[in-house]
Every structure is written in C-alpha cells, then in structure tokens.
Amino acid sequence: MNLNQLYYFKTLAELEHYTKAAEKLNISQPTLSHSIAAMEKELGAFLFEKQGRNVVLTKYGRIYMFYVENALTQLELGKNQIERLVAEGGGHVGLAYMTSVGTNFVPEIIAGFLDDPQNKNISFSCYEGNTKTLLYNLKREKYDLIFCSMVENESDVEFIPVYEQGLVVIVPENHPLAEKEKVTIQDICPYPLICYTKESGMRRIIDDLFVKAQIMPNILCQFEDVNSMAGLVAANQGIAIITDNPSIQNYKVTKLEFDTPYSKRMVYMAYVLNRYLPPAVEKFKEYIIQRTKEK
C-alpha cells in the first residue's frame, strides 16, 4: 500500500462515485478501480459497496477512513513543519552548550542574532550538557550546533574557536585563602578539590594543570555543573577551579584570580562536517563566525 492509494481511497469515500473521483485525481477510472481492489485484497475486507450508481463505505471502510484521515492530516502537518523550518527568513535552530556559557555568552549571542529584523521569525531550542554528551547527540542529529570544548580525533566534526573563558578559584568566605587576590596551583593543592566530572571538557584542562605542576589533586567530589560545585564550596567542603561565571555571585563564596599561565579555556562552536544545515542554522553559524572575527 502506498500514499497515493490512501489519497485515492479518501477521495472516493468523499465523492462516492468512481468517475468523479478519477476525474478529480486526474487518473483513469480503471486505475482507480484497480487501486481500490488492491487495497481491499491487502486488508482482507471490502471497503466500498454499491448503492445505485454510487458507492458508499462499508463498516470496514468507515473504520479505515478514520485512520486514513488521521494519517494524511499528520503527514500534511509534518510537511508544513518541514517547509517552515527550512524557509528563508524563518526556520529553527537546535542549539546545545556547556552550562558555563549558558548564563551570558549564549543569551547574548542569540539576542544579537534576533535583533536583526530579518531573523525575527527564526526560533531556537536550547539544551545544556557536558562536552561528551553534546558531541554524542550532535552526531545523532539531536542538535544542529553546539558550544563545547575541543576534542581530539573527531574527524567528522568541525571545531571553530568562538569564545575565551577565564578560570578562577572559588573558596568559602571564611577560608584561609579568601584574603588573597590571586592564588597559584601550589596554594590550593593542600585543600580538598571539588571538581568537574571526567566527561567534562573542563576536567581535562584541570587535570592537565596538575600534571604540568607535578601535583596530585585531592579530589573530594565531582559534578557536571558549576552551580552544584559552588554550593558545596559555600558549604565549606572544599575549593574549586571553575570558569568565571556570573551565577557564582548567588553563593557565599570568594572568587580568586588563578595565577597560572594556563588560566584560559577556549569554547568552540562545533557541527558535523558534510551534513546539510537548514538556512536558519547556516545563517546563525555564519553570524557567530563573523561576530568572532569582529571581536
């Protein structure tokens, strides 16, 4: 059974006349008759019965008509949705990013893009996650674009640097280090470290800092998001190295400058190479690239 047969069945059910239905469908009457007969054979039930010069739905035909109408309606809605998503001047962007850029960078870049009247009909769906999860879902087409850390050996993904984040150290307000303006990795090594999980791009950066310093960190707890880390630091359970984030102002912690040559983290825009990007996504991608060049 194919889509044309469903349209043939629906049209015949509405007009109740083979000749009129064939004319409306722009096919021959024998073609219509053969199509309906094939449907009835496949379903194992008669869908129409004669009534004078007309045909009307049987009991089975009426049942089937309910599902055919629903199916065709859903297909039409799907077609309209796809046309809306890829239309020039409109469309949709599926965007995902690390939690650390969700407070300022992402809202600012979306707002800047939508400030252009030509983009006012473009909508966004936004998601958060760690770099490993973001890449996994990007490659499975759940997202169009992501903001993440660089990951090596991802030959099918393009990484474009777009934003640099500073690293800071947060400590409880009554901590011995709280009186300092800046700290080194040697200053913080005696204290329990609240850290990102191993799936996070930031974890690789922090691990590398300790390797370069030839220090073994005392990791107490691991979290995916900076808010949970800041909450535990505020509870006087340790210290943390995080990306500088406005949300930490909501916690009773002291932010210290991190005195290290590697106190920056680059954020990348990533997308799958050689995959079709709808016009809205392509336009947003180019906006980000141009914005990065200008800054």
Rank of each mutant, 00 (worst) to 15 (best):
P117K: 02
T133V: 05
N119P: 03
L167D: 03
R140W: 02
V226W: 08
F113P: 00
T197G: 05
N218E: 14
K198Q: 15
F124G: 03
G231D: 11
N227K: 12
F210T: 05
Y143E: 06
N121S: 04
K198L: 09
T131V: 04
S228G: 10
E224G: 09
N245T: 08
P161C: 01
A213S: 07
G201D: 05
N174P: 13
E141F: 08
C189N: 14
V162M: 09
Q237W: 11
K139Y: 07
S247K: 14
A178M: 07
A240F: 06
L177T: 10
V162L: 05
V157N: 06
V169A: 03
T243N: 13
A240W: 06
E158I: 12
P117L: 07
I206E: 08
I206V: 09
E199G: 03
P217L: 01
E173Q: 13
I146G: 01
D156V: 04
E173F: 00
S123C: 04
I215E: 08
E128C: 03
D115H: 01
G166M: 15
C195K: 13
P192H: 10
F124E: 06
D225G: 06
V211E: 12
C195R: 15
Q214K: 12
I206T: 08
I205V: 15
E141H: 13
V183G: 05
Q165S: 15
P246K: 11
L135V: 07
M150F: 14
M202L: 14
N245C: 11
E173V: 11
F113W: 03
F210D: 10
G231H: 09
C195Y: 10
E154V: 03
E128N: 10
F210G: 04
L114C: 00
V151I: 02
V171F: 04
G166D: 13
S125I: 01
I206R: 05
L135W: 00
P217K: 08
E173Y: 04
N121H: 05
I205F: 12
M229I: 12
I194L: 02
V233L: 03
N119D: 10
N130D: 14
Y191V: 05
N137D: 09
P246A: 02
I242L: 11
I206L: 02
L220G: 11
V226K: 15
E158F: 13
V169P: 02
S149W: 05
M202C: 14
L134C: 01
N245Q: 12
Y163S: 06
C126A: 08
M150L: 14
I239W: 05
V157H: 07
V162E: 06
D225Y: 08
L220V: 06
I241W: 00
I241A: 05
C189L: 13
D156N: 12
T197I: 00
Y136T: 11
Q118G: 07
Y196T: 07
L220C: 08
C126Y: 09
N130K: 06
Q237L: 10
S247N: 13
E152R: 08
L114I: 02
K142I: 06
Q186H: 13
P217A: 03
C148H: 01
G166E: 11
E181P: 08
M202T: 13
E179R: 09
I219K: 14
V162K: 12
I160M: 00
N236F: 10
D225W: 04
D156A: 10
K142T: 04
Y143L: 02
E141N: 11
I242F: 05
E152T: 08
T131F: 03
M216V: 08
I160V: 02
L138H: 03
P217H: 08
A230T: 09
